[in-house]
Simulated scan of single mutants.
Amino acid sequence: MTQEDYYQVLGVGPDAAAREIKEGYRKLAFQYHPDRNKDNPDSSERMKRINEAYAVLSDPSKKGAYDDLRRRFGSGAHQHFRQNYSDQDIFKGSDINQIFEEMARSFGLRGVDAIFKDFYGQGYQTFQFKGSGIRGGGFFFFGGPGGPRAGRVPHSRTMGVIDQIARQLLEKKMRPGTGGARGPDAEETILLSPETARDGGPFAYHIKAQNKKLVVKIPPGTREGQRIRLAGMGRPSFAGSPPGDLYLKVKIRKPLLDKVKGFLARLTS
């Protein structure tokens, strides 16, 4: 497998916000869509690389893991990442299928099911589910004629996996009044000064994954390790219902004098 950088594949920088990553993917997916490149046999391989890069960089957890490998191994990050993540892992939870369907509706191109079977053969499978006001779907990979690859689901277990995923999604906690399953909660850490923690007040915070800037009201007497809940600011729902909640875990900045004392104590211990 060739060494490549996911950021270079999408044409975005390492500091690109989630919206920029998605916009970069939309542009390339339309440019290299096989229906628009019938005379270019290389477009399908290019599209597969673009799909993989977006599936990783659009997921905060996978992106964080890749960024860590990139800092440690440089150009070898892709190889190390693929040693730990199968296609099934990479594409789990991705919204690529939704983006392809949007292009299909807008421009009359083939939808995700036909395109991805061209890309990945019979090792690709879609699924749909609905019930109790919830509708959704997705795709995953399993072993093809050559046998299942590491981390993939064997064909004989495919329907069992689909049923399990659907049941888990349908049984998720329902947000009152929406009729749909809320998105997952998220947690991030904020660093407060001792004065802000003690007295409370407004605190500016940037949610990088969503490219949103907030002003959070810090309650007086906030303690180290305390969590502040921001309703509806978590991750979006797979089924299109309201997002989950965001919890900000508080870390209090130590005064410079305390840092110096701690450093000296470690030197003399």
Rank of each mutant, 00 (worst) to 15 (best):
G137E: 00
P60C: 02
L267N: 13
G221R: 04
G200C: 09
A18S: 14
P148F: 03
T2K: 15
F263L: 12
F116I: 00
H33F: 10
R223I: 08
L191S: 07
G262C: 04
E52A: 07
E4R: 12
Q8C: 07
K217S: 13
T196P: 06
G93A: 09
I165R: 05
R182Q: 13
G262P: 02
P60H: 06
I165K: 03
A231H: 07
D39S: 15
Q164P: 03
H206G: 05
K27T: 09
G11Q: 04
I228R: 00
A53P: 01
A17H: 08
G201K: 12
D87V: 02
G76P: 02
L256C: 04
E23L: 11
G108R: 05
M1F: 15
G183Y: 02
G146V: 03
G143S: 09
R82W: 05
A104K: 08
E188I: 00
S58L: 06
G108M: 07
Q8L: 11
L191I: 07
A186T: 10
T178F: 10
D258I: 04
R235A: 08
G225F: 05
I207M: 08
G111R: 07
R198N: 08
G221W: 09
Q122I: 15
F142I: 05
P194A: 12
L191F: 03
